[in-house]
Deep mutational scan, measured.
Amino acid sequence: DETGKFLVLALYDYQEKSPREVTAKKGDILTLLNSTNKDWWKVEVNGRQGFVPAAYVKFL
């Protein structure tokens, strides 16, 4: 159920650099879980949760 969740689009490829991050490919649609940090947003992609740089994604 996606009610109340926001989707964001990956603008660039991002390769995770730590276990707390997730890899995303340009064009991926990610479920935004938390955007309270202006630099790192928590997302879910391909069943995995983790952080990506906020500058790499935008709201749909």
Rank of each mutant, 00 (worst) to 15 (best):
E16T: 07
Q49D: 05
A24P: 02
L33H: 02
A24N: 02
S35M: 14
Y14A: 02
R48D: 03
T23S: 15
R48S: 05
K58W: 09
T36V: 10
V8W: 05
T3L: 12
G47L: 06
R48V: 09
S18R: 07
L7D: 02
D1G: 13
V43G: 01
V45C: 07
N37R: 07
R20Q: 13
D13S: 07
T3C: 15
L32K: 01
F51G: 01
L11I: 12
A24F: 15
K17L: 08
D13R: 02
A55K: 14
A24E: 03
T3Q: 12
V57A: 00
Y14E: 02
A24V: 15
P19G: 08
K42S: 05
S18Y: 06
G50Q: 01
G4W: 12
A55H: 11
V45T: 08
A55D: 11
E44V: 05
G27R: 03
Q15A: 11
D28F: 07
A24Q: 08
G47M: 04
F6M: 13
P53K: 07
E2Q: 14
K42Y: 15
W40C: 06
E44R: 04
V52L: 13
T3M: 12
S18K: 05
Y12I: 09
V45R: 05
V43M: 01
E2T: 14
L30I: 08
L60P: 03
P53N: 04
L32Y: 02
Y14P: 03
L60R: 00
K58C: 15
G27L: 04
A54V: 08
T23D: 04
V52Q: 01
N34S: 12
W41A: 02
K17S: 10
W40T: 00
T36R: 10
A55R: 13
V22W: 02
V8C: 10
A55S: 14
V57W: 04
A24S: 04
F6R: 15
T3Y: 13
D39E: 12
V52R: 01
Q15K: 11
K17G: 07
V8I: 08
K42L: 15
Y56A: 14
E21W: 08
W41T: 01
E16L: 05
K25G: 04
L9N: 00
A55I: 11
T36F: 11
K25S: 09
D39I: 13
V52A: 01
K5N: 10
T31L: 15
V52D: 01
L60I: 13
E44T: 04
G27K: 04
F6C: 15
P19D: 11
G27M: 03
K42A: 08
N46P: 01
V57F: 11
D28V: 05
Y14V: 03
D39T: 12
T36L: 09
K26P: 05
R20N: 13
S35G: 10
V45F: 11
N46E: 07
L9M: 14
L30K: 00
W41S: 00
D39W: 14
K38H: 10
D13W: 09
N37Y: 07
K17Y: 04
D1H: 13
A54F: 06
S18G: 13
F51P: 00
V22K: 02
E21G: 13
P53Y: 09
A10Y: 07
E2P: 13
V45N: 08
K38Q: 10
A55V: 09
I29C: 08
L9D: 01
P19I: 10
P53G: 06
G47H: 03
R20C: 15
D28T: 06
W41I: 08
A55T: 11
R20V: 11
G4L: 12
Q15F: 15
Y14G: 02
T23L: 04
I29F: 05
K26I: 08
G27E: 04
Y14M: 02
S18V: 04
L32R: 01
L7W: 12
V8N: 01
V52F: 15
K26T: 07
E2G: 14
G50Y: 06
E2N: 14
A55N: 12
D28A: 07
T23I: 05
L11A: 03
K38I: 08
S35H: 11
T23E: 03
W40D: 00
T31A: 07
Q15V: 15
N34Q: 09
A55C: 14
E44Y: 07
G47C: 05
A24W: 09
K17F: 05
G50H: 04
W40R: 00
L33N: 00
L33K: 03
N34D: 15
W41K: 00
K17C: 12
Q49L: 07
L11F: 06
G47D: 04
L9T: 07
G47Q: 03
K58H: 09
G4S: 12
N37W: 07
K25H: 11
D28L: 07
E21S: 07
F6T: 13
Y12W: 11
L60N: 06
K58A: 13
D13P: 06
Q15C: 13
A55G: 11
K17R: 12
Y14F: 07
L30W: 03
Q49K: 09
Y14H: 03
P53T: 08
L60K: 02
V22H: 03
R48G: 04
T31S: 06
V8F: 08
N37E: 10
L33F: 02
G47K: 02
D28P: 03
V57P: 01
R48A: 06
T3I: 13
L7R: 08
L30R: 00
V45A: 07
V8T: 02
V22G: 03
K26L: 08
V43H: 00
Q49Y: 06
L33C: 12
E2C: 15
N46A: 09
L32D: 00
W41L: 07
G50E: 01
A24Y: 11
D1I: 14
G47T: 05
R20Y: 14
L11Y: 05
V8M: 07
L60S: 04
G27C: 09
D13V: 07
Y56G: 07
L9P: 00
G47I: 06
K42D: 02
K25D: 03
L32S: 01
D13C: 12
P19Y: 10
D13N: 05
G27F: 06
E2L: 14
L33W: 04
Y56Q: 04
T3N: 13
A24T: 15
Y12K: 10
S35I: 11
D39A: 09
D28H: 05
V8L: 15
K25N: 08
Y14T: 02
G27A: 03
Q49V: 15
L30Q: 02
P53Q: 05
K26C: 09
A10F: 13
S35V: 09
T31D: 03
K58T: 13
S18Q: 06
A10E: 01
E44N: 03
L60Q: 06
V45Q: 04
V43C: 10
E2S: 14
V52G: 02
V22L: 10
Y12E: 09
V57T: 01
G4V: 14
Y14Q: 01
N46W: 06
L30Y: 06
K42I: 14
E2K: 14
N34M: 07
N34F: 08
K5A: 11
Y12N: 06
K58I: 14
P19Q: 09
K38A: 11
S18A: 08
L32C: 07
V52P: 01
Y12F: 13
R48H: 06
D39N: 12
F6L: 13
F59I: 15
G50C: 07
S35L: 07
K5G: 11
D1C: 15
K58D: 10
F59N: 07
V8Q: 01
Q15I: 15
K26V: 08
S35P: 07
A10W: 08
K42M: 15
D39Y: 15
N37I: 06
A10D: 01
W40M: 04
P19C: 12
N34E: 14
Q15L: 13
K5C: 15
V22D: 03
T36E: 13
T36C: 15
R20S: 12
T31Q: 10
R48L: 08
P53V: 11
L11V: 09
L11Q: 04
S35C: 15
V8E: 00
Y56M: 15
Q49I: 15
D28Q: 13
Y12C: 15
N46K: 07
V22P: 03
G4M: 13
Q15P: 07
L60A: 05
F59W: 09
F59K: 10
Y12H: 09
N46S: 07
G50I: 07
E44C: 11
K58S: 11
F6P: 10
Y12L: 09
L30A: 02
F59P: 11
N34Y: 07
V22M: 05
A54R: 09
N37F: 07
F6I: 15
E2A: 14
D1W: 14
K38E: 11
R20F: 13
N37S: 09
